[in-house]
Write a protein that binds this DNA or RNA. Structure first.
Lengths: 192, 192
DNA sequence: GTCATTCCATAGCGATCACTACACAAGGAG
DNA sequence: CTCCTTGTGTAGTGATCGCTATGGAATGAC
């Protein structure tokens, strides 16, 4: 019933898998590189995580959860402009963090389209709140704008993957903010 | 000296190879799918194109030449705003043309970084001309702006690959234009 | 201790990868 | 026709892919 205990840290092994998928993508990641990076033999990998596909799903879910944390925290900024600026800034920092592979797994991996849609939905949701709060014009095309911002984030990821510096990626984010509608002036007091 | 003549159209076979690399990328394209799509057996492929790497180089060079044609033609527009708008519009149309795979080979394939740098350079060059012509402010950060536009184009390609419609991709292009500096008023005629 | 259960390590499965050896076919030169 | 050159088609190379059969090691239950 109980059996021999596992000889490796499952979470640590999963983190190593995340790092692999993140750096070279699903297709270029092989079971051999995974077992090497995770410090685990193939049978142990399959016993603990199923197959390559399920391991990738679990890895991408872990990765995506962290991404969403960052976005949700940035979304708490009082105005839509500040929130979007913080999201793009955090994205730029994450994409060029020397401690992790460049770019973003969700924005790069072809098969993670649904996660990208979720990111876009989060962007739109924050823009919608900006319209409700009155710091964005009522006529703001929030869905179009969210699609644009997702595209910019993807471009930032690609720039980082091509070796772009943190400043290069940040410059993209800064420029993208110019495409937002001008903030609505709501009087002498800050709206929050 | 003369030998047996080739039994297939080299250009047509190359075009089929371009289509393969374009649709699924370098890594996912196998010799087997290439020979099938090109209507050629492996020895003929290797005799005519070298190996997979050289075939890809020739295919991407062919593809890139067409891309540059489109950009150079768009660059002839009188103002920088019109030229950039035309480039983004042409990009959007190319990325969602039903007759070709969605997205862009150059903007998608990791190993084509130098071609992406060339696209960015073309964008910067046209922006620089806009500054010289006086339809962009003298202080315009043309290099940063070119990096931003390349990122947007990459995002447009990704959107198309994710199944985005022509209108979705065009909306990204339209929104990106809002990030350009306002045109310099150069007299009684409206600059737009 | 014995047993059942679970994990680990070696070793290798069939399939597919990029690529090619070999024999033959199709042309020009003489 | 006989050569010579070059392309074609079959069939298969060693390497690597994702994945697993098998046997032994490590635990708890009794």
């Amino acid at each position: 019933m109980t059996g021999r205990p596992r000889s490796f840290d499952r979470d640590a092994a999963l983190a190593a898998a995340v790092e692999q998928f993140w750096r070279v993508g699903y297709d270029e990641t092989t079971i051999a590189t995974l077992t090497s990076a995770m410090g685990v033999t193939p049978p142990s990998l399959y016993a603990a995580f199923g197959d390559k596909e399920r391991l990738f799903q679990e890895a991408s879910r872990t990765y995506f959860a962290r991404t969403c944390e960052g976005m949700d925290e940035a979304a708490t900024r009082p105005t839509a402009h500040e929130a979007i600026a913080e999201m793009l800034d955090g994205t730029a920092r994450a994409h060029t963090d020397a401690a992790t592979p460049p770019g973003c797994l969700v924005l790069t991996e072809p098969r993670l389209g649904s996660q990208r849609a979720a990111v876009r939905e989060r962007l739109r949701s924050r823009l919608d709140r900006g319209v409700r709060d009155g710091d964005l014009p009522a006529a703001t095309p929030t869905d179009e704008l969210a699609g644009f911002l997702l595209a910019v984030m993807r471009g930032m990821s690609g720039c980082a993957r091509d070796g772009g510096s943190a400043e290069d990626v940040l410059a993209i984010a800064r420029t993208a903010l110019r495409a937002l509608p001008p903030p609505v002036d709501r009087g002498p007091l800050p709206p929050d």
